[in-house]
Design a protein around this nucleic acid. Sequence first.
DNA 1: ATCCGGTTTAACTATTTGGTTAACGCCGGG
DNA 2: CCCGGCGTTAACCAAATAGTTAAACCGGAT
Lengths: 211, 211
Amino acid sequence: MDNLSIPADSPGGPDSTEQRIFDAAHDVFVQKGLDGAKMQEIADRAGINKALLHYYYRSKEKLYETVARAVINRAFPVIRKMLESDDPLELKISRFIDFYIDLVSGNPFLPLFVITEMHKHQDRFFETVLSGQLPQPEVFFQQVESAIAEGRIRPLDPRHLLVNMVSMCAFPVLGRPMIRVVLGQSQQEMSVFLGQRKAEVKEFIFQSIQP
Amino acid sequence: MDNLSIPADSPGGPDSTEQRIFDAAHDVFVQKGLDGAKMQEIADRAGINKALLHYYYRSKEKLYETVARAVINRAFPVIRKMLESDDPLELKISRFIDFYIDLVSGNPFLPLFVITEMHKHQDRFFETVLSGQLPQPEVFFQQVESAIAEGRIRPLDPRHLLVNMVSMCAFPVLGRPMIRVVLGQSQQEMSVFLGQRKAEVKEFIFQSIQP
DNA sequence: ATCCGGTTTAACTATTTGGTTAACGCCGGG
DNA sequence: CCCGGCGTTAACCAAATAGTTAAACCGGAT
């Protein structure tokens, strides 16, 4: 699996104080959100004095913004490349599912963080995401239309297909605690269950779109 | 459409102080979460003195718990009944999709609220907020197994089918702002798009599970 | 060796915020 | 009329927490 683990960013040396702060802030903000995060906890996790947070990042707001932008900038461009590649449709769908499920499984806090950020700070979110990394679904849509025309798949709205794909990959991580309890599973069983989904979702899709 | 809109609860007269507090708290908690909500803001929105919040609801925790329970109690029991009904499988799936999409469309804040609070305050969520309301999927699973045995649908894991169903219904509301921008749609077009999903998701599922 | 800048810290301040209290008003029963 | 209790309020309190400051540290340049 690629190195998709998110915290690996910008500043100074890879073990500089600034970097340690960023990493700690990333962990705390991503798990607890802007309101739930405490500066002291970030300082403790970074193993440094709280004043250094302000020395390097002025304010909680600024620190949060830095983290939020980094998370967004790391998640979206890869998805975009994947949608715009010239892999044939079936392979593209397969790779997309694999990649997306790996991504959210390896970063279980990512979907909730991104979605919360998208809702609570919409302006900043789209300003960030619109700077060149907005996924362009046109290529994918075109491929679907062609496959329909060729009779390789049944007629369907490619937009709904795309939304279905993303939904089935992202939601299970969002709803994991609920799903786990409803299915009566342990944490380990739940990890297995989520792993199964790569195959299961692909099968579900390919069965659905066949002519 | 049924009256699925959430805020309409318990106490006193429909315009009592207690009710006004509840409504204001509902709005604020749902929009900002437990951590982001401020008691003063709730009081202001209710147009009353902050001390009255404590007079009627003791503490922020209790007030939050009341609101969260009310939200959960309106959504989950119906889902549970739906899964446990003795409708034949195909009809049950169809009704489930219709109901779930109506529910989240009519209460777009609901999924994000439930998921956020479930993650951020897991213990309390499952112990006090959700006590007893857990959906029991056994009946549904049994029906799927029977349908497989009878050859009416292809062999598949009923757990993944259920997760797929919920995912495709709930996620589009969570990701709505993103989906809207990626598809280049207006708010109106987006509402239409989400409305189409009732038919589209059902078709997607039935095509997938057919033998 | 010493000066000097960036770095780091402990202690401090200011503000926010959940929660309390004591007084006031209002209204129905005696 | 007045008494008593529920409802309501302004003012207050205490804890938590973001942010500041002044002094100490430290390594390299002179």
